Amino acid sequence: MSENNKTKDIEYWQSERVAFCALQSLHGVGFKTLHKLVRNVDSLKAFIKNSSADEFAKTLRIKLEPTLHEVEHSWKAFQQQLWADGISLLKKLAKDKVQVVFSQESLFPEKLRAIDKPPLWLFVQGSLENLNKASVALVGSRQCSQDGYWLSKYIHSILHKKNLVTVSGLAEGIDQSVHYESLRFGIPTVAVLGTGIDSNFPKGSEILRADILANGGTVVTEYLVGQSYSASNFVQRNRIQAALSDCLIPLEWKIKSGTAHTVNFAKDYGRLIAMLCLPDSDENNPERKFIESYQKGMVFQVPHQTADVEEYILSLVDENKPPKTSSEPVNPKKEQFKLDL
């Protein structure tokens, strides 16, 4: 791509980010509405700029003030203010080192682009490069036992200095243990949220999240700014965890649980799945049977199969070369915002 085309490409996507932020700032425009709009229009900026008040309200299924439909200059003023609101939100995100990346952009993670029903956009706080590196997703129960915590510590001792990234969900229990142990062993870790990027959920996770970012990690979500949690959001969040991984390791889980959704997504995406079993574990439990029935599933007895687990982990680095990326961290001082529609 020529330098001139690169500049145009950067300007186009920056305008789309402003428009995207502008639209989500509107009362009544939620995730599903914006998702449908992105799928069905060529340009969000063009949608804002070229729509009449009637077309705009009908497409978004929102009500506008009557004067916006009746008085042309009132509608133009509304468009200008909406654009300014988009700039304001994008500046706020940039200040918090949050990037918005669309699925059509070259910076978008290839692992996510390749799945069925990929996210159409991502909010990424911290290192975007982590999303393109060889990674292990470690997930499990919120009500985990001491065995689950031990397995988390065990696998991180093996992952240490293996040039891998860990992926989990910042939830209480196993997920937070994964992030804590990753920080302890100096492993970059990715937290995939089931809420908006500005939400601190679960309550009390703010310090852990700050530590993740301070140590070269990443916080990522597809949900809109201000969007709260729901059961369905967390199920869909799980597909991103599975897709970002080269290997999924469910540390403690049940066949009927939230973690099972992540396991099933990993299976659907053809990811490797490994299960670690302690010496006294039941060889006939349904979770183990599920992994053993999967063509790319592996079961390890630990700790005496530690050498086998380590060899397995090393194979991930050798066989999954992370795609090159020219991404750079957001620098608010370098961001340029224009008010012109």
Rank of each mutant, 00 (worst) to 15 (best):
A19K: 05
K203E: 07
N331G: 06
K203T: 05
S199H: 12
Y229C: 02
V29H: 10
P329R: 01
D318M: 08
K91F: 00
N215S: 11
S15P: 00
L151I: 03
K36N: 12
T325H: 07
F265W: 09
D42N: 14
A214D: 12
A22E: 05
D198T: 03
N50D: 15
A210G: 10
D340S: 12
T195N: 12
E65M: 04
L251R: 09
S168C: 07
A307H: 09
P279H: 00
D246C: 14
I291W: 03
E55K: 15
K111V: 02
L276A: 10
G196F: 01
S281F: 08
F20I: 08
L34P: 00
L316A: 03
P118K: 01
K95F: 02
P250M: 13
P250C: 15
V124P: 13
F56G: 09
H35G: 07
A243F: 03
E11R: 14
D147T: 00
I255P: 02
V124R: 05
L151D: 00
K92P: 00
R237Y: 04
C247N: 09
S205I: 04
L131Y: 07
E206Q: 09
K324Y: 15
R288Y: 02
S257F: 04
I48F: 13
R184A: 12
G169Y: 00
I249V: 14
S232C: 07
E55W: 11
L208D: 10
I87R: 09
R113E: 03
P303K: 09
K32M: 10
W75L: 05
G194E: 02
H35V: 05
S141D: 01
W253F: 06
I197Q: 10
P329E: 11
F201V: 13
L93F: 02
P66N: 07
N4Y: 11
D198C: 02
W13H: 13
G186Q: 07
S168E: 09
V178L: 10
L170R: 06
L341Y: 07
S25C: 09
L138W: 00
E110K: 04
V38W: 06
V299D: 12
L122C: 02
E55C: 15
E72Q: 12
Y269W: 08
F337G: 14
V225T: 14
V100T: 06
E105T: 02
S281H: 14
Y149A: 05
G28A: 04
S43Q: 10
V192C: 10
H160C: 06
L251E: 07
S103N: 00
R184H: 14
Y154C: 07
K338H: 13
S88D: 01
C144Q: 03
Q295A: 15
G204V: 00
T7N: 05
T67Q: 14
S135D: 01
R39A: 06
V101S: 03
Q146A: 04
C144R: 04
V220E: 11
V71H: 02
L164E: 08
K267M: 14
R288F: 05
R184N: 13
L316R: 02
I174A: 11
A22M: 01
D147S: 03
E3Q: 12
Y154H: 05
K333S: 15
I313N: 09
P202W: 11
L151C: 01
G204T: 03
